[in-house]
Every structure is written in C-alpha cells, then in structure tokens.
Design a protein around this nucleic acid. Structure first.
Lengths: 339, 339
DNA sequence: GTGAAAGCGCTAACAA
DNA sequence: TTGTTAGCGCTTTCAC
C-alpha cells in the first residue's frame, strides 16, 4: 500500500492566515473566543489549503479518539443468515456519524479472537465499545469489562452468575412473546405450542418465558426446541404434531422457524390459520411478508436498538427512562394472515 | 463517556527493564538488532506492566494507521435484505485481522454522506479503502479516487465514461449467467426467459449479458425487468407468463426473485421443473435451500471476494493472475430440484 | 548493539 | 482575544 500524500498542517494554515497555531486550532475546534475577522481569515486559509486535522496528533494530546468499537461475537453462521446485525449497524452508524464518531468493526471468529479483541479494547484505541454477545457463559463480555472501556451491550447478557450491572439495550422479548401468545388465546386457541430458539441465547430464553407467562406451566408440554433456522422450525413442528396432533396454534421464536413450521403444517394437510394459527417473531420483512400465508409476527425495531446503544455510549450513563441498567424497547404485534 | 485509565508508556517499560526507550521500541516492533538477553528483559517488563503501544503516537510518526475503511454505499434497503454485505465483511475482516489491520466501517445513507466520506478518506485516517458501489453513475467512486487513498472496489464499477483503470474484484456474473442458461438449454429447454435485476447495477447488467450471450438477440423477447426482490420477481414472472405462456424455463438474476417467480408459477399451475425449469443466482442458502422446490442456482463465493479485496489492498497492486485491473472470481452451478 | 535527541501535528495552560 | 510554549508517546536518525 502506498503512502498517502503529505497534507497541510496547522502550521501551514497559521502561516497563510497570518495567525498563530493556537488560533487556528481554536477556529478549527469551534472558533469560540476568536474575533470574527480572524475566524474568517482562518476559515479561508483552511479552505484554500484543503486542511484536514491529523487525528493521530489530536488523539495523542486529547486522549480521545472519536471512535467506537462494535464487537460482534457470533461464531454461528446464523448471524449472516438474517439482516439483524446489518440493521443494528445501520442504526449505530447513523448515531455515531451524527456525533462525528467512527465505527471500528471487530468481528470475532472464535475463542482465539477474544484475546485479540480484549487487547485492542484495552489498548485505548477507542472511546467505547458496543458489544453483541447473546450467549450464556460467553467469556467475552467479562474480558471486555476487564478492559476498562465504557461498554454498552446489545441484548441482555447471559451471565451465569446472576445479572451484573451492565448497561444494555434489549427488545422486550418476554413482553412481545406474551403479546403473541395472548393474541392466539384471544383468537380462541387453547392448545398453543411453542417452537423455541437456541436456549443458550437470552432472547430465546426470554421468549420462552413469555410463552410460559401466558400458558402456565402446563404449557411446557407443548414446547419443542428449535434453533432460529427454518430447518430447526421444521423439525420442531414435526415433533409437536407428533406429540400433540390436536394443537391449534404455534408461536415460533422467530420468523425463520415459523417459515419452516408453515411448510411442515402444509405438508401435513393443516390449513393456516384455519386449523393452526401461527405467529412468528422479528418481523423480518423478506421472510414474514413472503411466507404463505404472510406471517403474523412480533416486530422489534432493530435499527432503533442500534441507535439507542450508540446514544447511551456517547452520552454516558443510561436511559433515564429505564429503571435498571437495561433499556428495554417495546415490540409490536403485526397482524397478517397466519393468525 | 468516561476517560480511559492511564496506561503505561514506553518510558515506563524502559525504566523497568533498565534500557532506553529506543530499545524498547525496537523490541516491541520485532526486536531486530537487539541482543537476546535484552529482548527477554524488555519482553518481561512489557508483560508485567501490561504495556500496549499508543497507536496515535505511533501513527503520528510513522504516518501509517494499520486501518482500512470499508465504504458501503447502498441507499436501498435491499442491502439489508440479504446477507451479501455481511459475508463480504466477514471475509474482509478475516484478512485484515490476519495482518493486524482494523476495519473502519463507513455506511452512507445518501448524497450528504458522500462529502463526509470523501473528507474522511482524504483526511488520511486510514491506509486504504474498500468500496462497494455498484450503481451506474454513482459519484462516490469518483470522489474517492480524488481523495488519493489506495482503493479497491467491490464489484465492477459502473462508469458511464468508459471503464477506467480501477482495481476491483467481481464475481464472474456474465460467465455464471451463461452457465445457468446453458444448463437450461442442455436440459432441452428452448423458450428460456430471464428476470433481470435492477439494470443500473453492473451485476444485473452483466447477468443479462450472459443470458443474451447464450440465447442470442432473439432472447430479448423473453426478458422482464425485476429488482432483486421477491416482489419484483413475482411481477416479472407474471408479465412473462402473460407475454409467453409457452415458456419452459426461467433464469432469474438472483435467488430472491427466483423465489418470487416460483410462487407465481405455482399459482399459475405450472409444475417446477416439469413444466418450467428455474435457475437462480447467488446461492443464498436461507433462500435457495428453502424454496419449493429447492433452487438450482449459481453460487458465488462472497466471503472470498471480501478476502481478496482486502488482500489486494494490503499487498498493493493487483492479482497477478488477473489480466486487467479487475480480478474476476469463478462461479459454480449448484444443482438442486428446480432445474 | 545501544542510547540520546529530535520531532511527528496537535491542544491546552499560561502569558501577554 | 491572541500568542508562546510545553508536552502527548512514539519512531528514527545519528552518535557512540
């Protein structure tokens, strides 16, 4: 890779404007306390020279970087089978950009990468970190907390040793699940089944909890474990039909598994929603709108989640509207044809 | 956001090891020309103090950043409807990580962001840029070239003023399309239709060209424009059935539109592949494997594309195996049930 | 092979 | 209000 061309320095601008470096610096950083005519002259010099501050030099003295790391720890291929992270990134990017911060993306592939990420964060290259790690007993969150960098987590972290005080933003998975199941009950369904996600992820665990909140402990008989994939949804649906051929509704932990369930239901001659009503979770449009029939589902605003995470990190502290260290975003039931 | 804790400096390590800063610097940067016992002592001091070099200070003098910008210019929502960019990012990230480079993600939302990105790149914050912009007449690539930063493009850039000499990596869209269409012809199909993508994207234009390579100019009668979405695929399929009810095969420019086409074909009572054979493009697994019937399609190795882009940028120049400024990756026909 | 010293471009006291 | 000056932490000649 070739070197970038030499760029004008503060010094050069100062010379051209006939002022000191300090004055140029002041103007560049907002111009407070500098008289108008000077500001004007400096601005012009900056313009003419095409001056852009050297961020390295600035960071060296300010100890700020105007950069935030986004750590996505997802060994599974699942990450890239849905637009979830892409949407989060959009939200985060928008917020960071609005505050002149850069987004440094750290993707981890496995355990080896954990040390690398921890080292990077501890190295003080960024002002903060946004971390996605939604698995139980993932060591990464701990490592990151140890790095001493302000951090906001995406999703409820799944600590095994009780919930520590970590700032995080999550969808109301439990509440959304409750709403979905209640909707099915309100439709008159009584034998409502649930296809879970991988239960080592807090989102899946929370959705299961929401299901049980409504159906009670007897609801457990109608639970089958899936893995957020269409294939897992198919397997779980077959298992459920096998165990309880008379079920009249299914709440799937996400749209992808709901799509799998729909296929199995059709293959088994069940009409949706007449015989079996189906509700999904996510409102992932390319999936939910394209199933046959289109899927009734619980929408979560992923992009907004990203935006709020970034906001929390940049502005410090946590959402004043939140009661604990976590900010929980509402979900909405989107009614389509499947239930 | 709170300040990060003060970290040990070179100075501190030097003091602890009883050597000069210069020596520590040498050891930290590879240790050439430093006698073994000293190296050992310095290493230990680094370890004990948990020293991590200050990248800002280092950049200030070396003028290198060990960071690469990834610019994704995609105003459409489409980006996030498929895992395309996520896979590219994975590939890029892997390669960058292997060479101790950081990934700075720059997402653009519209024209306003172009200036921002250009300024950032021109500001010399990164050593190079990987740019995705696959639309004709997008001003961004030009701006970026003007920024004087080494750049590799993802996908064939769609210059209106002739193809300039830009280093880029692309899938063999045209060749892949040819292979798909030839496969249909080999199956004995004679009335092969094509559902295009948005033709202002070079990938879509190239796939159309591949289709015409095989079908000849008369093939144009059986072309309908789609937009890479399932809905677009549906509309195009209806239009085609309307115009040519006797068609016996369809090559869709991507899997998503193929999925839409499949639905319309079924709704119109056509059996796939008996009556109409269907081939897609991308081999986007969650789509291609889940359609009914599973989709025969052209696979492109997206992650590898990302990896190669990064490699080209880091190691300078372009792929020696490539003839022009562009590196073209092969595609593979994946046979499933639809054709 | 190792150390001393200069300086990368900038900000922030402090003086004027 | 503006300028002077002292570093921020590091690499890199250049002596030794």
């Amino acid at each position: 890779m070739t070197e970038t061309a030499p760029r004008p320095t503060l010094e050069a601008v100062a010379a051209r404007a006939g002022v000191s470096r300090a004055t140029v610096s002041r103007v560049v950083n907002g111009g407070d306390g500098v008289r108008e005519p000077l500001v004007e002259r400096v601005r012009r010099a900056v313009e003419e020279l095409g001056y852009v501050p050297n961020q390295a030099a600035r960071s060296l003295v300010t100890r700020r970087h105007d950069a935030v790391a986004v750590v996505i720890a997802e060994p599974e291929t699942r990450v890239f089978a849905d637009p979830f992270f892409a949407l989060q990134l959009r939200g985060i990017s928008k917020e960071l950009t609005a505050h002149d911060n850069q987004l440094v993306l750290l993707l981890t592939e496995g355990r080896d990468d954990h040390a690398r990420v921890a080292r990077y964060l501890a190295g003080g290259h960024v002002d903060g970190a946004l971390v996605f790690s939604l698995h139980l007993d993932d060591p990464l969150p701990g490592l990151i907390q140890g790095a001493g960098v302000p951090t906001v987590f995406g999703g409820r972290p799944g600590w095994s040793d009780g919930t520590r005080d970590v700032v995080h933003v999550d969808s109301d998975n439990r509440g959304g699940a409750r709403e979905a199941v209640r909707h099915l009950v309100d439709l008159g369904r009584r034998r409502v089944a649930h296809i879970t996600g991988p239960l080592d992820q807090t989102s899946a665990a929370d959705r299961l909890q929401g299901f049980l909140d409504v159906m009670g402990d007897t609801g457990r008989r109608l639970v089958a474990e899936g893995d957020f994939t269409p294939g897992g949804g198919e397997r779980a649906m077959r298992e459920l039909l096998d165990r309880s051929p008379d079920l009249d509704a299914v709440f799937a932990a996400n749209d992808l598994s709901a799509a799998g369930a729909l296929r199995v239901l059709r293959a088994h001659g069940r009409r949706v929603p007449e015989d079996v009503a189906v509700v999904g979770f996510d409102d992932m449009l390319p999936v939910a709108e394209q199933t046959d029939p289109p899927l009734t589902t619980v929408r979560q605003d992923i992009e907004e989640m990203g935006r709020i995470m970034a906001r929390l990190l940049l502005h410090g502290g946590h959402d004043p509207a939140a009661s604990g260290p976590g900010t929980v975003l509402p979900t909405t039931l989107i009614r389509r044809a499947s239930a």
